[in-house]
Design a protein around this nucleic acid. Sequence first.
DNA 1: ACTACATATAACCAATTAGTTATGGAACCA
DNA 2: TGGTTCCATAACTAATTGGTTATATGTAGT
Lengths: 122, 122
Amino acid sequence: MEPVGYIKPPDLDAVFAALADPTRRAILSRLASGEASVNEIAAPFEMSQPAVSKHLKVLEHAGLIERDTEKQRRPARLKAAPMADAVNWLEEFRTFWSSSFDQLDGLLEAIQNAETKGGVNE
Amino acid sequence: MEPVGYIKPPDLDAVFAALADPTRRAILSRLASGEASVNEIAAPFEMSQPAVSKHLKVLEHAGLIERDTEKQRRPARLKAAPMADAVNWLEEFRTFWSSSFDQLDGLLEAIQNAETKGGVNE
DNA sequence: ACTACATATAACCAATTAGTTATGGAACCA
DNA sequence: TGGTTCCATAACTAATTGGTTATATGTAGT
């Protein structure tokens, strides 16, 4: 049994890998407007139902969806929490893409990092 | 020649795939504290230099790093812009992970989405 | 009991990935 | 000139991925 208050560390490998496929991103977008059955999810895609079931399994494994079991349908519902983990990791780099950092071309970068003890870690 | 003002569409496939590997994320974190040569990057890892060169190629292809050429070194520097594209895509789902959306268990979700015309797309 | 439906699973396949070792080539040092 | 350092490339391999078709399973309808 897990200790009370246990929080599983975000599996960024699985989350980013799940997000790396356009079909899976489309599925997530679809689920943002409500849960859907496998066939409903599969309809827009030119691909077999088992292929979609596989994508759903990848998404579920990454914690990005949940499956229900009602009658013979197994609807999927969005679980966006792991996306927050992904964004949290990316946010550590915000400095580097905002405020036209590229123009400074790494000048401030060196200075700034010389006086911060910490760093960007996983 | 490209038209003036042309903006290449973000290749989310390549960006997310590049981020899906822990070695590559560690490399990006390393580069956040300044550019580094291939050997400097490779040092902390228990893996051959060619393996690291491959990772760098993946990161470069995703637009996440740039390579210089000075003397015989080929230092890599962080280019974080594609991370902003990734975050932008993820931000569309912020509603679903913030404000304890999970507790509501999809109740508000259905209502809210019934009255918004648009949706979350790629 | 038979049929249709919704989904999962198995077996297979081609392409990609992440690593390896071996080698090549350019730049520096003596 | 010869050796060393830095890096890239080639060739190979094992594992993973994303798809297929065929089949199995559970549920519902008649």
